[in-house]
Design a protein around this nucleic acid. Structure first.
Length: 107
DNA sequence: TTGCTGACTTGGC
DNA sequence: AGCCAAGCCAGCA
């Protein structure tokens, strides 16, 4: 396989470690996995595994650097927002997310 | 090979 | 807070 195999394993390993009620940004996940400039690919990867491994991979806990959801294109609508709110994560008036207190980094 | 696209990021207004 | 432009790397036509 390509280097993507390694990339995929690392990314999934990181996302799987995100604790309940916490979130991480695409850039952070890419960074923690050892691939600094791969933020876009993290999202692309999660799109593929979202339905297949949704049970073990908390993809909904991965957001963009603005503290907002990037699922405008998935079509699932506000599913991610619903899932996050179910974990106790609160959104601001502008629909943003309190990254300052919710963003998670390597344990 | 080039060129476009994308679940992104950062900096400037 | 919100919009725009540039940079970024892989995949695909």
């Amino acid at each position: 396989m390509k280097l993507e195999a390694d990339f995929r394993d690392k990314v999934l390993a990181i996302v799987a470690q995100i604790p309940y009620g916490r979130v991480a940004t695409y850039g952070s996940v890419a960074l923690m996995s050892g691939y600094p400039r791969r933020a876009r690919h993290v999202g692309h990867l999660l799109r593929g595994i979202s339905e297949a491994t949704a049970d073990v991979i908390p993809w909904q806990r991965v957001v963009n650097s603005s503290g907002k959801l990037s699922t405008y294109k998935i079509g699932t609508g506000d599913l991610q927002k619903t899932l996050l709110e179910a974990e106790g994560i609160t959104f601001t008036k502008t629909g943003g997310l309190k990254l300052k207190q919710l963003e998670w980094w390597l344990e």
